[in-house]
Design a protein around this nucleic acid. Structure first.
Length: 653
DNA sequence: ACCCCGCCTG
DNA sequence: CAGGCGGGGT
């Protein structure tokens, strides 16, 4: 409609680095990146299991249903992503059947299970609609209604209260007594068997392909899982730490391959890539790498802040830690942490532990059904795996990304100054600054559906961890870790928070007409969908509305005051108009409005002035020419805005 | 069809 | 600020 979108896209081409800068391309990219495997979380799965149990009393272990759920969900998401051209899925019936039912047939266990069920049901009922969200999600996927309809649907779901992190904690908390311990112990066995089955299946699928490495990685996980949980936690962590790099790298690369369009994978195989396709491929991979980095960062950040001293002991006991190579890495880590987080290096182990577990599991779960033979690592395995030897993914992450988790965790200050918490807390890693991480929930009225976040550890996997360590005194440590993981899984937001609103307002100082593509590149911590995009666009529409109303008002006022030369109308920082605008977009006045905005505002004011003075306002669409002019005056947004928080360095303190 | 814009309204 | 609507552009 206007030239604005053209000029905007030009800007985005450079930032995104792919040709064309087409909206569709980019939304496809985003979708394939973020809407991928939505894995049901713990309470959802368990409550489902409980629900089924009445009809199927023999099935005691939730595992088969869990797996089936996972499986189906994966398929849903893959078809939703437009990757339906993939190889036909294997039959998913027999994969997850286990012969372990007899182990748990006694009364004793039934009683315990009932207790766990009631706990979980209680969790599912009260503030947590996760199970509901999941089924609603599935419904939604088949919903072919118009955009508004689906938005309305979502709105209804948004009304449901949201909460997710405490569940794992609660569940694990119930393991404190011996009975629960016993139960969890059994669950561990179940999981072990489960994993064996998965491993078998997995090997079938990958027999032709790097079977040695794959097996190695999987066996490492298997080893850990089959270890009696009476073994020390340190031992487990050591083992994982030793081996996780391979597992992590491999699984990451495979996940990556999974998500890249199959089209591309074929091309890759042929080694024949057109430049356009290559660019798209690179863009997709870049996005993926960034997302992975974010996830890693988020996990790490939480752990760092909530788990300051404990892990150093574990770390000290690690033989690997003595190699020079590692020391270098650790030094780098320390450096990159800016010494904000003492013991950061040891925290990495936990991060890595979680990551390896997550990745390994998702590797198995995702790949086995649909990807018989897939030469995943033919092409560049990106960031998280490029650096050999336990290359802590966090090394790749930028400072900018480091800001993100914090802002997400911090949410929005109660006084409306989103950074006030950070500002008032000298040590940003201080747990005290995390005391109200769910501030973001406040704006959950516009929340989308509840769903797991693809790049974050999901509760099912954490559950596995919980069972692994259940019953040990040390498991409280691990529980903390898992709390952190669950906690940090909010990193990729499905909803726009007040922080995002604030950021959008500040961005308005630079761009009045951001395209959805641009928005996507500046709200990297938001899982975009149509409604989120619409909401963001709507925000800017509202911003513009206010902006233009002010302009018109002050232009008319100037005319009334007898101003004759529009050159006399300049918006300065102490002008009334500026104060009105600043109050609206920069309430706390903690951001230095760029001069360019003053120029644009002045020009806008003059345009309105001239138009009104010339009597053009009799034309019902007299503002359109002005809009067109202003739409061409957008400037680049500082890179720092790509951090999900409004970067502190942009704020005056 | 779909997206986005601007206007209007609450 | 969000919802609804009409309009205009692809």
């Amino acid at each position: 409609m206007n030239g604005s979108s053209v000029s905007k896209q030009d800007g985005e081409i450079t930032s995104l680095g792919h040709p064309g800068g087409l909206e569709k391309e980019s939304s496809l990219q985003r979708d394939s990146l973020f809407s991928s495997p939505s894995v049901p979380n713990l309470s959802q799965l368990l409550s489902q299991t409980i629900g089924n149990r009445t009809q199927e009393p023999k099935v005691i272990c939730p595992s088969s249903q869990i797996m089936e759920l996972l499986h189906q969900d994966g398929e849903d998401s893959s078809s939703r992503e437009g990757t339906q051209a993939l190889a036909p899925p294997l039959s998913h019936t027999p994969i997850f059947c286990f012969g372990d039912k007899d182990e748990f047939g006694n009364e004793h266990l039934r009683a315990k299970r009932a207790r766990v069920e009631s706990i979980i049901q209680g969790m599912s009922l009260s503030p947590n609609p996760i199970a509901l969200g999941a089924s609603a999600e599935r419904d939604r996927e088949h919903n072919t209604e118009k955009r508004r309809e689906s938005c309305r649907e979502n709105k209804r779901k948004q009304k449901l209260p949201q909460q997710q992190s405490p569940h794992v904690a609660q569940l694990v908390g119930t393991s404190a007594n011996a009975e629960e311990h016993h139960y969890l112990k059994e669950q561990l066995q179940v999981l072990q068997q489960q994993l064996r089955q998965l491993q078998e299946k997995f090997f079938q699928v990958y027999e032709l392909n790097d079977s040695d490495q794959t097996q190695e990685g999987t066996e490492q996980i298997m080893h850990l899982l089959t270890e009696k949980h009476g073994d020390s936690l340190e031992k487990s962590i050591q083992a994982l730490t030793r081996d996780q790099h391979k597992v992590l790298c491999r699984s990451t690369s495979e996940m990556e391959g999974h998500k890249v369009l199959e089209e591309e994978s074929k091309i890759v195989i042929k080694g024949d890539l057109s430049s356009e396709e290559r660019t798209l491929s690179e863009t997709l991979k870049g996005e993926l790498a960034r997302v992975v980095s974010q996830a890693v960062d988020s996990v790490l950040k939480k752990i760092l802040s909530s788990f300051p001293g404990h892990l150093s002991q574990m770390y000290d006991s690690l033989p690997m830690a003595t190699t020079d190579n590692r020391r270098e890495h650790l030094a780098s880590v320390e450096c990159s942490r800016k010494k904000q987080f003492p013991k950061a290096s040891s925290q990495n182990l936990v991060n890595s532990l979680a990551e390896a577990q997550t990745e390994a599991l998702s590797l198995v779960l995702e790949k086995s059904p649909d990807f018989p033979t897939y030469p995943v690592s033919l092409r560049g395995v990106r960031k998280p795996c490029q650096v050999p030897n336990m290359s802590y993914p966090l090394l790749m992450s930028s400072q900018v990304q480091e800001n993100q988790i914090l802002s997400q965790l911090l949410g929005y200050g109660q006084n409306g100054h989103w950074n006030s918490r950070i500002a008032s807390s000298p040590d940003r890693s201080s747990p005290a600054s995390l005391d109200q991480p769910w501030g973001a929930v406040k704006l959950r009225s516009s929340v989308m559906r509840q769903q797991q976040y693809p790049t974050s550890p999901n509760s099912t996997q954490m559950e596995s961890l919980a069972f692994l360590s259940a019953g040990k005194a040390e498991c409280r440590d691990l529980q903390s870790i898992m709390d952190g993981m669950s906690f940090s899984s909010i990193h990729i937001q499905e909803a726009l928070t007040p922080g995002h609103l604030k950021k959008a307002k500040l961005m308005f100082f630079f761009t009045r007409y951001p395209s959805s593509t641009l928005l996507k590149t500046y709200f990297l911590d938001v899982q975009f969908n149509r409604c989120i995009t619409s909401q963001l666009i709507k925000w800017f529409s509202n911003f513009r509305e206010f902006y233009y109303i002010q302009m018109e008002k002050f232009a008319r006022q100037a005319i009334l005051e007898g101003v004759t030369d529009c050159k006399d109308l300049m918006v300065s920082r102490n002008s009334e108009l500026f104060r009105a605008l600043n109050m609206h977009y920069n309430k706390g006045n903690d951001f230095e409005v760029p001069d360019r905005f003053l120029e644009v505002a002045s020009l806008t004011l003059q345009e309105f002035f001239s138009a009104v003075k010339a009597g053009k306002d009799s034309d019902p669409s007299w503002k359109k020419p002005i809009y067109k002019i202003i739409s061409k005056l957008d400037s680049d947004i500082p890179e720092a805005f790509k951090s999900s928080s409004c970067p502190q360095e942009l704020l005056q303190s």
